[in-house]
């Protein structure tokens, strides 16, 4: 594109102004001359459409959460909130079930992330050591589980036999070690912990523990950060294990509470709304609560998103390379 635009703006000192700037390939066809600008226009246009298609629904939910439901019903809410109200949020923040779900989610997410990251890093380091006796069969032990699994029912029965049903551990433990993350972490250690370092430490009498905790881990901050982020998001968003393993409502994580409100439309469960005088009023509040809950449950992720951006892309690339 710059090629075709450049000649007229060239300073006149370089060439005689009367003679046209010589083209390297003067007989370019019309198609090839306009192919790139046309491509640029279509490409940027397509991307703009995609960007709007992604952003607008999210934006709409945000403004709908503070708009009067009747205004949405009448199709008046498009760009700015109409009939501004914070009732949905007031209701959400005063609802015991939702707040307890939030607290449970925080607990499960912190414990789950801690367990996963600790177990994965330790195992990945051991597996990254080329001098580990039995390294290949041990790795195979993990990789096999990527392709074969016992199925939903057997998993449920095992968790039941372990006596974990309806406890936090049923949500936190069964999915704790993802083989894919193990592979990423192992690749990181293999590429970033030089063997010479290990030899030097060994010469100085450092044990494997000592080397792992005081040298390898401090060297691996980007990896630790990436692992923490991956698990924070995964644990925060998880709902299925809670659905099948938890019975008592006071142990439900936020996603399960959300599911009951948003998908099952158990609106009455969401508001402690006994005082509402009519069905219409309940429905009105229900809509506000639904929009508001989407916003509130997504905010923690939007807060961490900028932090993980860089690392997440790196992780995705590492995954792609190891593929």
């Amino acid at each position: 594109m710059t090629q075709t635009v450049a000649p007229p703006t060239l300073p006149p000192t370089r060439k005689l102004p009367s003679s046209p700037a010589p083209q390297p390939r003067p007989r370019r066809s019309l198609v090839s001359r306009y192919a790139d600008p046309l491509f640029n226009v279509i490409a940027v246009g397509l991307l703009l459409v995609a960007i709007v298609a992604i952003i607008y629904p999210m934006y709409f939910i945000l403004i709908a959460s503070v708009s009067e439901p009747s205004e949405i019903l009448n199709g008046n809410v498009w760009v700015v909130p109409r009939g501004f109200t914070l009732e949905g949020y007031v209701q959400i923040l005063s609802d015991a079930g939702i707040l307890r779900g939030f607290a449970n989610s925080v607990l499960y997410t912190v414990v789950g992330t801690g367990v996963s990251v600790a177990v994965i890093l330790a195992a990945a380091y051991a597996l990254s050591r080329k001098d580990l006796y039995g390294r290949t069969p041990l790795m195979l032990l993990f990789v096999i589980t990527m392709f074969i699994d016992g199925g939903l029912i057997a998993r449920y029965l095992v968790v039941r036999d372990l006596g974990m049903l309806d406890t936090m551990w049923a949500v936190v433990l069964p999915g704790a070690v993802g083989v894919w993350n193990l592979i990423i972490a192992r690749a990181f250690f293999e590429n970033n912990v030089p063997g010479e370092l290990r030899d030097a430490a060994q010469m100085d009498g450092a044990s494997d523990f000592r080397f792992f905790f005081s040298i390898v881990l401090p060297l691996s901050k980007p990896l630790i950060f990436l692992m923490i982020m991956i698990h924070l998001v995964a644990n925060w968003n998880a709902f299925f294990d809670a659905l099948i393993f938890l019975d008592s409502e006071d142990k439900y994580p936020l996603q399960l509470v959300l599911r009951n409100v948003l998908v099952q439309s158990e609106v009455s469960a969401a508001g402690g709304t006994g005082a509402l005088d009519s069905y219409a009023a309940a429905q009105r509040l229900g809509e506000l609560i639904k929009y508001g809950m989407i916003v509130i449950s997504t905010i923690p992720l939007l807060i961490v998103l900028p932090f993980m951006q860089k690392h997440f892309t790196k992780g995705a690339m590492l995954g792609a390379v190891k593929n």
Binding site: I148, D149, G150, R155
Partner: peptide, 18 residues
């Protein structure tokens, strides 16, 4: 270091396979 992960796959992957 490897042990917790091995216990995990045995409990939650291989036992269900069995």
């Amino acid at each position: 270091l490897l042990l917790p992960a091995i216990i995990h796959v045995i409990l939650f992957k291989y036992w269900p396979m069995y």
